[in-house]
Amino acid sequence: MERALKDKKAICFFVLPALIWFCLIALLPVFQSAGYSLLDWDGIGDAKLIGVSNYVKMFGDPLFFKAVWNSILLAAASVFIQLPISMVLALVLAGGVRGENFYRNAFFVPVIISGTIIAHLWMKIYHPSYGLLNIGLEALGLASLKREWLGSEGTALVACFVPMVWQYIGYHMLLFYSAAKSISPEIIEAAQVDGATRFQTAWRVIIPMIVPMIKACVIFAIIGSLKSFDLIYILTNGGPVHASEVPSLLMYKKIFISNEYGYASAIAIFIILECLLFTFIVQKIFNHIQKD
């Protein structure tokens, strides 16, 4: 058996298909992107090596900054609005309520539906004349608040955030919930015997014990926001007048509309590095919290 497990042919047979597939399709292209980002290339003509000019151009481009800023706002909305809502729901459900499973299943439904469908559905919700939102406002006597949510520069970005936050509340709720459920019941009972209210138990006992999961969720929420594409692509395509532009969408347009392959690759590299940087920062912050 020892010999069988050291058989070189068998090792190659088992590991090479996956390894080659992964390296060629996922890993190598990252280096290619880095290479492209140094080129002036439209995909058809000759490519010209221009060094870091694309990066210089990128950091001087107000549109790029706007896109990055929008994605950071989205990340902030996810962390400071979506996650707290998810946390409250998770703690309430994990604390035991009648119909716990029903609620959990219901909250989770939007998570599994494709972003395309969610986006088209919300387009109808935002429809200026027949959309749920404007009709609802009118019914509540708030007709003065009616507007073209996706078509006005002032509201387009927020209108894109709402469905994104809405869709993934259930996802983070589930993660917090399963973390809270894995705490041994004795610990929670002990707290309650000591006279802690439900709120105190949640705040002083449960939340500190699920910090690792909170860290994971913060990282998911931030990275998901920095890479967001589907919903905005359909809802506004970055408009009006780039009011809801985000980096992935900008990159996509640079590739398929204006054929600026070099510049698009510089944006791609920026997105990767930005995600790594934010992951690193969140790790550091949480290490600090966990030490205290």
Binding site: I25, A26, P29, V30, M251, Y252, A264, T279
Partner: peptide, 18 residues
């Protein structure tokens, strides 16, 4: 090597794959 893939996303390789 496989684990580094956790940090990559499809977005980053859209153009090279294309």
């Amino acid at each position: 090597i496989f684990l580094t893939g956790m940090m990559l996303s499809i977005h980053a390789v859209l153009l090279p794959l294309f």
